[in-house]
Write a protein that binds this DNA or RNA. Structure first.
Lengths: 328, 328
DNA sequence: AAAAATAGGGTAAACGATAATCCAATTGTA
DNA sequence: TACAATTGGATTATCGTTTACCCTATTTTT
């Protein structure tokens, strides 16, 4: 800017004003400045600007792992949502390590991010209380933390359970099983939705039809094999997530049963290769992108606001995607 | 820092030195400063520091789309590699739109990133020549751009083709087909590797055994069906990538043929759910993480260097992962 | 025609740090 | 004892931009 000003015999402030379209500047000087800026290939130094304006137009995104498609999709949606407002995203992941998460969030704060979106692994609210005390807006995503006075966005897991189970009922299934997942909150909510749907349709709620699929590898496969030993065998299975469903399908096929004729299968989550499977999988889409978008919108709202807006809890409504695995 | 200095009756510079472990400071004042800093909950303002040091300790990562597992893995590896050196990653994606890519890279430059890693969609070298002219180190990843004087890191696609084909040969296949992909450079290199391996083992190079799998959806499926109409039917298939292989497996199963007994199948790429498939897939792992890591290391090297280090082209050696789909 | 308003721009300070010098007091050396 | 070297720290300038305020013509209003 100094170079531009010198050559044109105007002050740096005048240049600054032109570049930001602020203040009263004649058309003539404006033109001259702009042209010279182009000639010199001038680009705003955002660091300097941020120092004085106290806004960096960056937000921090703190995730456990962004190779996981779920979080990758969130990252994309967030970046996409804030981009039109000139914001960029600084990513950071912490591998489920709360200590590392704390370090990283400190770093992000030191970099003066204007806001933070986090899918946190903290076991208590200390970290976020500190951040909020520094007046930095925070939006929690996917994982709520008790006691944190911040907005939250996540999937409506109970609705997912209901949607999947209701669909199986609508397809004529009467012996509906559930392969449940390990994550306390999420799995419990999906299970609750499953139960709720069964009750509402006066179907029996058999404990032996709910099998845990807790293991990392081929989790759905072994769980489904356990389920196949029940008498009578279920005619519909709601699987905690898509990988579990894929394992289940394998187990069912191996047992010589047909999908969906003998057993209908519903998955849930955000895996998008369902079409490539041997049996295209009916699944409940948890609309991950929506979550990311909403979180980003909430955050931007808070960043722009003078007074702290009310805290919101948003649950994203899932969507059923019907494929061959349940179409009788 | 001013607050710390005031309370202790020392200069701001002294505080600065303590906080950075620089200069000569007595143990006593050091202690006092550090304690007061903790009391006041002081955190470095990196924006201010960056302004004067001219280093932001951020790098820009410019990718087409980071929900794609390939790029997500790169992002993770990059972030992981630069973290120990205090660096953070600003992400940006451009949906294969060269114009958007240019805008985003400009933004990243304006944010004064210390370096840039890009999987670019530019059709010429202008953009990167501009960036390099501004003395910002650049490393290209996955996609080389002709005429750009920057280091490059990518998979060794010819080696991938060789590795896959040699493995099929070693398994006793003699009629080996290839489902080739659409991307010019990459697909061509893999095809070249395939041909090279065949020639080396004096196997015939039949054009009708090379089928394009160009379509987005169920690409491998239709291509494989075409292949199954050949006479004689191949006894081994090297698929351009894993999704193609999954489609191929489906087509083969439908045709009543057994894998690997009748036809052995090899995939390639970076999909990690191969184990969950009906037939666990033998594949060539292109070691995406390695690429990201190497790219990050090259970049950090350049950022640290006084003189511009020599430009390097690094090809990552692939790795064969044998599963059921080829184990006869 | 005088007063008020506006247009067009300049000045000085600040944002929160670091770099380069410099200086006084103490310590070591010949 | 005299001089040099070291210790511990202060001063001043700077990074590139914005903010708040001031100034002088010219134009508008009354």
């Amino acid at each position: 800017m100094l170079d531009i000003a010198k050559g044109l015999n105007v002050s740096v402030v005048t240049v600054s004003k032109v570049l930001r379209n602020k203040g009263k500047i004649s058309v003539a000087t404006r033109k001259r400045v702009l042209q010279r800026a182009k000639e010199l290939n001038y680009h705003t130094n955002w660091i300097a600007r941020s120092l004085v304006t106290r806004r960096t137009f960056t937000i921090g995104l703190l995730l456990p792992d962004f190779t996981h498609p779920f979080f990758a999709e969130i990252a994309k949606a967030v970046a996409e949502t804030v981009r039109p407002q000139g914001y960029h995203v600084i990513i950071s992941y912490f591998e489920e390590d709360p200590e590392l998460e704390k370090n990283e969030s400190d770093s992000l704060m030191a970099r003066q991010v204007d806001g933070l979106i986090a899918a946190s692994a903290q076991s208590n609210s200390n970290l976020f209380e500190n951040i909020l005390a520094r007046k930095v807006p925070v939006v929690l995503i996917d994982r709520p933390i008790a006691g944190v006075q911040a907005s939250f966005v996540g999937a409506d897991n109970e609705a997912i359970g209901k949607l999947a189970t209701n669909h199986l009922i609508a397809q004529g299934c009467t012996r509906i099983a559930h392969l449940r997942g390990p994550k306390i909150g999420i799995a419990a909510a999906r299970l609750a939705g499953y139960r709720h749907a069964l009750q509402k349709h006066d179907l029996p709620l058999l404990p032996r039809y709910v099998v845990g699929a807790r293991y990392v590898d081929s989790t759905g496969y072994t769980a489904m094999r356990k389920l196949l030993q029940q008498e009578p065998v279920p005619d519909g299975v709601f699987c905690y997530n898509d990988p579990v469903a894929i394992g289940a399908i394998k187990a069912i096929s191996e047992a010589g049963l047909r999908i969906p004729h003998d057993i209908a299968v519903v998955g849930a989550g955000n895996v998008h290769y369902s079409d490539m499977l041997a049996v295209p999988l009916t699944r409940v889409d948890q609309c991950t992108g929506q979550s990311g978008k909403q979180a980003a919108e909430l955050l931007m709202e808070q960043i722009g606001a003078k007074r702290k807006p009310r805290i919101k809890k948003i649950l994203i409504t899932p969507k059923l995607v019907v494929r061959q695995s349940t179409q009788r």
